[in-house]
Design a protein around this nucleic acid. Structure first.
Length: 561
RNA sequence: UCCCGGGUAGUUCAACUGGCAGAACGCCGGCCUUUGGAGCCGGAUGUUGCAGGUUCGAGCCCUGCCCCGGGAACCA
């Protein structure tokens, strides 16, 4: 496909931000002569749009500077981790359009990590502490208050080494002992107050199985993993800034195979009307608020995929929002705008009536069926045309007719002529209503001279509406989605779930033109005047609304209301 | 209370390291239109957190203050 100027971001110029500036400076100063990044998820959940920012950053940087970017599973804590997530994460990254240079695991380095721990102990820079978690935590002190040193802090390196080996060999119960770095219990940064490096967990690991009963903490594993792989720029989110002194401390006391990597923090992505924390997302799934991690209302990559968000749009969105250190919540409309921009260029146009009401064309020859030619995509001539059956009984959208319309309503109303898209001009004559006043049938006449939608005398109509021939209609189920949370910043005050939108999904039975029989799973089509819709991956008779089109009439209504 | 970040249109980011504060999305108005879509043209939006200081000139440098976020798991 040929990218139009407003389609996918062209990587020629590349965005500029403080991280790229830092990399350029490092390169210029000879600090590094190459660039290597990594994406290090913990396999304990599904990826969401926030991760996409990190993925695009890390893989994008590697691409831009011609270096590797590994996918590394940070699997140092078997409590929450599950191999189920490993495959899903790889799959999501590929879907986004990135291919890791290699897929590795922090657990691949357990031997080296342990050897380094013994090295640290030998240097008198780590010790085994017999106290329990609660005691250690209490001794850490508070903000502005120094901590107190553990009574086990001054064990000799020999004693510590023996104890550490016993820990490794399973001589102690879970929680009975930990290995701690010996740094400074009065450090102003909490993470430097003798952080825990190893804990005992008699739990099978998804890769090392039962080979280990001690597992390294994040702080003991992360920087070293970076160093082992040869990462130059280790990018993480803002909340890890306090860990940077510890990241550096660990690496400075070890013999490294490569130059010491540098950690740089950036702000995570927030989206309006969305929650991003794994805990909250899990609750949505477990409480049945949504159907699962891939529910189209979820901000997960799987959810967005099912919803019909193209990876190109997500990448263009991430490029546009840039990367900085300011906490940010981006308006979801910006993402949606990229989604529309992409589909506008690529999606085939189709006609579906979501809320059907019958139109009977009283002067149409009885039983006659004609075919009219409709353009598949006005943005892309190569998409061609299709034949759409036209007959004397049609479905149109209920709100495209009003017996008694307000001003500036351009659509069908008694006595007014409108165009049926790619079909004929019709003029409403009257409407049949039921006892409650609901319209059950609209009666109209057509002008046989206007086939294809043009009048030979050049007269204009103010509105064009979509339609489906009743006898040829495909029955469809269509899910219409609204924001999951009504509050733009759910949870900022009070419980996020208080602003859950009870009407975040509406399901309707719709009538589609015959071409809807030929859609493929996952395909996104534009339903004329309605929006973009994704075909369900498992049921081609079901559509999910990706995003609506901008609708000026709806805006007029909103302003009046 | 201590440490680290951060504060520029509604929102997200720029502003070439001191030289006329801009872009995108959103919003408003118009044009055009066989999608009230798309597209095109135009417009508004700011006490650059506050107060001082240096300077011919400060969003940028200095001083003091205010506000917001993060940090005291054997989570990551």
């Amino acid at each position: 496909m040929t990218p139009s100027p407003h389609d996918e971001t062209t990587p020629t110029e590349g965005p500029s931000d403080f991280i790229r500036e830092k990399i350029d400076a490092d390169l210029a100063a000879g600090r590094f002569d190459r660039v290597q990044t990594r994406f290090p998820p913990e396999p304990n959940g599904y990826l969401h749009i926030g991760h996409a920012k990190s993925i695009c950053l890390n893989f994008g940087l590697a691409e831009q500077y011609g270096g590797p970017c590994l996918l590394r599973f940070d699997d140092t804590n078997p409590v929450a981790e599950d191999p189920e997530y490993v495959d899903a994460i790889i799959d999501d990254i590929r879907w986004l359009g990135f291919e890791p240079t290699d897929v590795v695991h922090a657990s691949d380095y357990f031997d080296q990590l342990y050897a380094w721990a013994e090295e640290l102990v030998g240097k008198g820079l780590a010790y085994v502490d017999d106290q329990d978690a609660e005691t250690i935590s209490a001794q850490r002190g508070g903000f502005g208050e120094p901590g107190v040193e553990s009574p086990f802090r001054d064990r000799t390196p020999e004693e510590n080494l023996g104890l550490l080996r016993q820990m490794r060999d399973g001589a102690f119960a879970d929680g009975e002992k930990v290995l701690r770095a010996k740094i400074d219990m009065s450090a102003s940064v909490m993470t430097m107050r003798d952080p825990v490096l190893y804990r005992i967990r008699r739990l099978p690991h998804h890769r090392t199985e039962d080979r280990w009963v001690i597992y390294p903490t994040y702080d003991w594993a992360h920087g070293q993993s970076d160093a082992i792989e040869g990462v130059t720029h280790s990018l993480c989110t803002l909340e890890f800034a306090d860990h940077r002194p510890l990241y550096d401390w660990c690496l400075e006391h070890l013999e490294l195979p490569h130059d010491k990597p540098e950690q740089t923090e950036f702000a995570r992505l927030g989206l309006t009307h969305t929650v991003m924390s794994k805990r909250l997302l899990r609750t949505l799934v477990e409480d049945g608020v949504v159907d699962g991690w891939d529910d189209p209302r979820m901000p997960t990559l799987r959810g967005m995929r099912k919803r019909g968000y193209p990876p190109e749009a997500i990448r263009a969105f991430v490029d546009e929002i840039g990367v900085a250190k300011t906490n940010s919540t981006v308006e979801i409309e910006l993402l949606e705008s990229h989604v529309r921009r992409h589909h506008n260029a690529h999606a085939l146009r189709r006609m579906v009536v979501l809320d059907p009401v019958k139109v009977v064309i009283t002067n149409w020859p009885d039983g006659q069926v004609e075919h009219v030619e409709a353009v598949n995509n006005p943005e892309d001539e190569s998409a061609g045309t299709r034949q759409v059956p036209f007959s004397g009984e049609l479905w149109i959208e209920r709100d495209d007719f009003m017996a008694d319309p307000p001003p500036k309503y351009y659509r069908l109303t008694p006595g007014r002529e409108v165009r049926l898209r790619a079909g004929y001009f019709i003029t409403a004559t009257d409407a049949v209503t039921d006892a409650d006043g609901n319209v059950t049938e609209i009666r109209a006449t057509y002008d046989p001279e206007t086939k294809g939608g043009q009048a030979p005398d050049g007269r204009k109509v103010k509105a064009t509406i979509h339609w489906v021939s009743a006898a040829h209609a495909e029955d469809l189920t269509v899910h219409l989605y609204e924001r999951l949370f009504t509050d733009s910043h759910p949870g900022t005050e009070g419980d996020a779930f208080d602003s859950l939108n009870p009407a975040s999904r509406e399901t309707v039975s719709a009538k589609g033109e015959p071409a809807l029989a030929d859609v493929t799973p996952g395909e996104v089509v534009q339903l004329e005047r309605l929006g973009y819709f994704a075909v369900d991956p498992d049921d081609t008779r079901t559509l999910h609304r990706t995003v609506g089109l901008r609708d000026e009439w709806a805006n007029i209504q909103k302003r009046k209301g």
